[in-house]
Amino acid sequence: MSYVRDPWLPDRLLRTERDALMPLLRRTPEASFQSRTACPGWTARQVLAHCGAALVRIVEGRLEEGVFLPEANAADVAERESWPLGRILDELERGFSEAGPVIAETADGTLDAVALGEWVHAGDVREAFGEPGAYCGAASLELALPLLSVTSRERETPRLVAALEDRPSPVVLGNELPDRPPARYTGDAATLIRLYSGRPLVRTRYELWGATEQELLIYR
Rank of each mutant, 00 (worst) to 15 (best):
M1S: 12
M1R: 11
M1K: 07
S2Q: 14
Y3D: 10
L9K: 01
L9T: 01
L13G: 02
R15P: 08
E17C: 08
R18C: 10
M22P: 05
M22L: 12
L24A: 08
L24E: 05
L25E: 04
L25S: 09
R26W: 11
R26Q: 15
T28W: 00
P29N: 10
E30S: 15
A31Q: 15
Q34R: 14
Q34G: 15
S35R: 13
S35W: 00
A38P: 09
A38N: 12
C39F: 07
Q46I: 00
Q46Y: 01
Q46M: 14
V47E: 07
H50M: 13
H50R: 10
G52H: 12
A53Q: 04
A53D: 09
A54I: 11
L55I: 11
R57K: 15
R57H: 08
R57D: 13
I58G: 03
V59Q: 03
G61Q: 12
R62K: 14
E64F: 06
E64W: 09
V67F: 10
F68N: 08
L69Y: 00
P70H: 05
E71K: 13
A74Y: 00
A75M: 11
A75L: 15
A78D: 13
E81R: 07
P84K: 01
G86E: 14
G86P: 10
L89C: 05
L92W: 02
L92A: 11
F96W: 08
S97V: 08
E98G: 07
E98D: 09
E98T: 04
G100S: 07
P101Q: 11
V102G: 08
A104T: 04
A104H: 03
E105K: 08
A107R: 03
G109L: 10
G109K: 11
T110Y: 09
L111V: 00
L116H: 01
E118P: 03
E118Y: 03
V120W: 04
V120G: 06
G123M: 01
R126P: 03
E127A: 13
F129Y: 07
G130L: 07
E131P: 01
G133F: 04
A134V: 02
Y135C: 04
C136H: 04
A138C: 01
A139M: 10
A139H: 09
L141R: 05
L145E: 06
P146A: 13
L148M: 09
S149A: 15
V150A: 07
V150Y: 02
R155P: 11
V161M: 13
V161S: 10
A163R: 15
A163Q: 09
R167N: 05
P168G: 01
P170F: 08
P170V: 08
V171P: 12
V171F: 09
L173Y: 00
L173K: 02
G174D: 10
E176P: 11
A183T: 00
R184L: 15
R184W: 06
T186D: 12
D188K: 05
A190K: 04
T191D: 03
R194C: 14
Y196N: 01
Y196E: 06
Y196R: 01
S197K: 06
R199H: 03
V202H: 14
R203K: 14
E207L: 11
W209V: 14
G210Q: 02
A211T: 09
T212L: 07
E213M: 06
Q214L: 12
E215S: 10
L216Q: 15
I218Q: 03
R220D: 14
